[in-house]
Simulated assay, not measured.
Amino acid sequence: MSFTSLGLSPDLLKVLSDQHFTLATPIQQAAIPAILNKKDVFGIAKTGSGKTVSYVLPLLMNLKEAPKLKNRHVNALVLVPTRELAEQVKDVFKIFNKGLNVPVKAVAVYGGVSINPQMTALQGTNIVIATPGRLLELVASNAVSLSDIETLVLDEADKMLNLGFKEEVDKIISLLPQKRQNIFFSATLNADIQLIHQVILHDPLVIKIEEQEDSIEQIQQVAYIVSNENKGPFLRKLICSREMQQVLIFTSSVHAADAVVNKLRKNNFDAKAIHSKKSQGARTEALYLFKSGKLKILVATDLIGRGIDIDRLPFVINYELPRSPKDYVHRIGRTGRAEQIGEAISLVSPDELDHFEVIQKKMGKKVDLIYSENVV
């Protein structure tokens, strides 16, 4: 379905065209008209399905008609679980804001960086994109008021609750006006999500986009059996032989991510690590360089990897297998996006073979296993 049939304004349709958005995804087709009509929405769809655009576009349109508020009183609040996602959402608002005659100001706030610049930035803000802890700090400092919020968005609600933000989210919701629009998006449905849905949402439109069994069919998968001590040399040989110009590598720990980067850099590979122990400045810089193509290799842990969304990422490498089969699917899903072919490569040590068998069973797909000694 084309975006032109969803009730969006001509200025936003022009930006969509300029950004080469042609057909709306299923979640966008269902959510955009409902949000434009100020309905509560509860959307369940996998990561990469277009949820952010689903609420950004109608929010921008609805805010054109919103009343002018006092300084530091904001119209809309988007709660997210990670700093990386906060920046990513802000960037989407920034892209579509360019097409509006009266621009809407959207600001991202999160911990790990100085609070003072964020306090200053909140002046005259319409939309705040925030992680829960930092938002409560800003409220306590009178840097922002939530008393006039018209729309609340919980993006990646499942991850927010899984990461232990429930108490903070409850406190934030208690500060909001009772009469408001609520928009919840989640990749999964569990007991906590069901509870928050029942307590907070008012007669919502429930959108559940079933994940197709062949949702990873566009991703070419291969696995190499390689001992732990040979993973480093084999990884470097793989990057060279395949002439990889952009590759995201996953490890299962902060220590492993740093060790992989150190080895790569010692061998003259352009690489950086991104994980929870890095400063926010270092994380933002590494992600920017990688997304813009100025950095060839990014090594990430699972939590930080959730904030990496690149339409045409050609390669993902599992240097170590994740514990959860769901995390494996999420990792490889960083490639093969926007109907592009991608390749996911796993380096599987002999002691990981049983676990990799479990991953394949849960995924419902067999992956070719190749002994690394047979690779020239």
Rank of each mutant, 00 (worst) to 15 (best):
K68Q: 14
T82C: 15
D91G: 12
F96G: 01
N101V: 12
N75Y: 05
K105T: 05
N101I: 11
V89R: 07
R72K: 15
G48W: 01
L59H: 08
H73E: 15
T82A: 12
A108Q: 04
R72L: 13
P33I: 05
G48K: 06
N97V: 05
I35H: 01
K39E: 11
N71D: 15
K51R: 02
Q88M: 02
I35T: 03
L100D: 06
V78H: 09
F93Y: 11
R83F: 12
P103G: 08
A31R: 08
A76E: 09
F96E: 00
L60N: 06
V74S: 09
Y55G: 02
V78P: 07
F96T: 05
E84G: 01
A45E: 00
N116Q: 14
N97H: 08
K39I: 05
I44C: 10
S114G: 15
Y110W: 07
E84L: 10
E87T: 10
E84S: 09
F42V: 09
G48M: 07
V92R: 06
V107C: 08
L69A: 13
G99P: 03
R72T: 13
L36E: 03
R83D: 12
N71F: 01
V109N: 10
G111S: 14
S114M: 10
Y110D: 08
L59W: 07
F42I: 07
P103I: 08
N37E: 11
L85M: 12
T47A: 02
T52A: 00
P58C: 10
G111K: 14
P58G: 05
V102E: 13
L79C: 08
A31W: 02
A31F: 07
A106Q: 03
A108D: 03
G48Y: 02
N37K: 13
L36Q: 00
P103A: 03
D40I: 02
P103C: 04
P81V: 10
A45N: 03
V53E: 01
L100S: 13
L69G: 11
R83H: 10
G43H: 01
Q29N: 01
Q29G: 05
A66W: 10
K64Y: 06
A31E: 05
P33F: 01
F96R: 00
L59T: 09
V113P: 02
N116V: 12
G111T: 13
T47W: 03
D40A: 01
P81K: 09
T52E: 01
N75Q: 15
V80T: 12
S54N: 04
P33G: 00
V78I: 15
I95R: 09
